[in-house]
Design a protein around this nucleic acid. Structure first.
Lengths: 234, 234
DNA sequence: ACAAAAGTGTTTCTATTACACCCATGC
DNA sequence: GCATGGGTGTAATAGAAACACTTTTGT
C-alpha cells in the first residue's frame, strides 16, 4: 500500500502530503558534563554512518509526544517514562531531508543522573549504535540536526532559569552541590556556591529530606522537590 | 489526483500521511486594546460559520513561514510584508481536526497600528468574512483555536519582556506614550509612566527622531528604533 | 484660564554580586 | 591530623517599584 490515504480521505486536495517526524534531544549529565543521546545512522538511508538525533516518523493516530517517546525507545532502548519531555521548535525547510518533504517537530527530554551508565550504547534496529556525547561540543550531525541541537540547548538553558527544570537531571532526593553541578553543566559556566544556595532556597521549592548521604568529606543534606502535599511541613 | 505522492516517493513506508497546516494569530492594536484577526468559516467544512484563526495547508515546496504569509493573504487580504512572524508551537493532537490527521504549526504575527482600520473585514474565497476582535476576550473559536490563541498571547507577552517586540505594533517613528499603550494592551495592565520611560530609555535602543507630533495637549517627542547605522548619532 | 496630555526625580526596597573562612567526615 | 568536600554571612551594587507635580500646547 503505497498510498495509505485513509486518514486523509476527508481532507481537501490542497493538503499536500508531507512526512511528519519527531526528533528528540535527550539530555543527561555525566562527569559534570552535559551529554546528549545520539545514534549512528545505518548504512542504507541518507547520511549513512553519521551521528544524528534519535528521530522518526509520527504514526497515524499518534500524539507528537507519544511519537517522541516511541522513537526514542525504538532507536536507543531508552524508556523515558514520566520524565520531562517538551516540544521546542518545528523545522520545516522544504529540502532539509533529501528524501522529500519532511517536517520535524523537535523535542527536548531530560534524564536523571546515572542514565548515561545505565544505557551506555544500545543500538536500535535501524541504527549502528547509540552513545551519550558532549552536547556543547558534538560530532558532525546528519541533516540539520546541529541546528536542532543548538536550539534544544538554548531552550534547556531558558528552562533552567525560568522554570525549575534542573531537578529533572537528578534522582528524587539530591544535595545542593549536585543541583549546582546541573546548573553549571547546562549553562557552561561556574557559579558561586553561596549565592546559588541562597537563590534556590529562597524559592521555597526545596524541602529538606532529613537524611544525609555519605561519601568523602562532609556529608551533604538531602533535599526533595516541593510538592503540594508536603508544602506545609516545617 | 487523489494520491499525490511524488514528494513522498522516497520516504519510508512508516511515514504516515498527515496534513500539515499553519494557523496564524495576527495581532494589532485598536483603541488601546489588543485585537486578533479572525475569519468566519464558510458553510461547507467543519465548524461552519464559527470564528477561527486564519489557517490552511502547507504546499509541497513551501516553507512554513511562507505558508503562513500566503494563508493570511488568501483568507484575509492582509499582506504581512517584512513584519514580525514567528512560529510558537505545533499542535498535533490526533483528533483536533474531524476531517483526519492534521498537524498545525502555530504562528504569531504583529501588525502596526492603523492596520485595523486599513483592513476592516476583507473576506477570502473560503471564508464569510474577517474581523479584528478582542484578543483577551475572543468569541467561541473553531477546532482548538482557543488554545492556540491563548498560547500565542502568552508568547507575545514573553517577547515583549525579553525582546523589544513592542515597536512592531507601531509605525516607524512613535512616541513613548504610544509605546506604553502597546505594553499595557498586551500585558493587560497599566504601567507607571515614569518607570516605563526610565526602563525603555535605559536600554539605549531608542533614538529621538527630533520632530514632534501635534494633537491635543502637549506634543510628544518622536523616537525611532535604534539601528546599526544611526547607533553612534548623539 | 483651563483642559489635556507630556514630561520629570527621589526614595525605598529587593535582588544580585563579590568575597573567605569554619565544619563534618573518612582515612 | 589532614585531605576532602559541605556549609555559612555580610557589604556593595544594580534594578524595580512607589509616588506627585510642572510643562507645553490648543481652545
Amino acid at each position: 500500500m503505497s498510498c495509505p490515504d485513509a486518514a486523509l480521505s476527508a481532507l481537501p486536495t490542497e493538503a499536500a502530503p508531507v512526512g511528519l517526524a519527531v526528533d528528540v534531544a535527550a539530555f543527561a549529565l555525566h562527569a559534570g558534563e552535559l551529554r546528549v543521546l545520539l545514534t549512528r545512522r545505518g548504512g542504507s538511508g541518507p547520511h549513512a554512518h553519521t551521528w544524528a538525533l534519535p528521530g522518526g516518523f509520527v504514526q497515524e493516530r499518534e500524539d507528537l509526544g507519544t511519537a517522541a517517546l516511541r522513537v526514542l525507545r525504538g532507536e536507543t532502548g531508552l524508556d523515558l517514562g514520566p520524565r520531562h519531555l517538551e516540544q521546542f521548535f518545528t523545522f520545516g525547510e522544504p529540502w532539509r531531508d533529501p528524501r522529500g518533504r519532511v517536517v520535524s517537530v523537535g523535542h527536548l527530554a531530560v534524564l536523571p543522573h546515572g542514565t548515561v551508565n545505565a544505557y551506555p550504547a544500545q543500538a536500535g534496529p535501524h541504527t549502528q549504535g547509540a552513545a551519550w556525547l558532549s552536547a556543547h561540543d558534538p560530532p558532525a550531525l546528519a541533516f540539520d540536526h546541529a541546528l536542532i541541537l543548538g536550539r534544544a540547548i538554548k531552550r534547556l538553558q531558558l528552562r533552567l532559569e525560568y522554570a525549575d527544570l534542573a531537578p529533572e537531571f537528578l534522582p528524587d532526593t539530591f544535595t545542593l552541590p549536585e543541583l549546582q553541578t546541573v546548573h553549571e553543566a547546562v549553562l557552561g559556566r561556574t557559579l558561586d556556591k553561596r549565592n546559588f544556595r541562597k537563590r534556590v532556597l529562597a524559592q521555597g521549592q526545596l524541602h529538606p529530606a532529613g537524611e544525609r548521604r555519605s561519601g568523602v568529606g562532609r556529608p551533604a543534606l538531602l533535599y526533595r522537590r516541593a510538592t503540594l502535599e508536603n508544602e506545609g511541613t516545617p
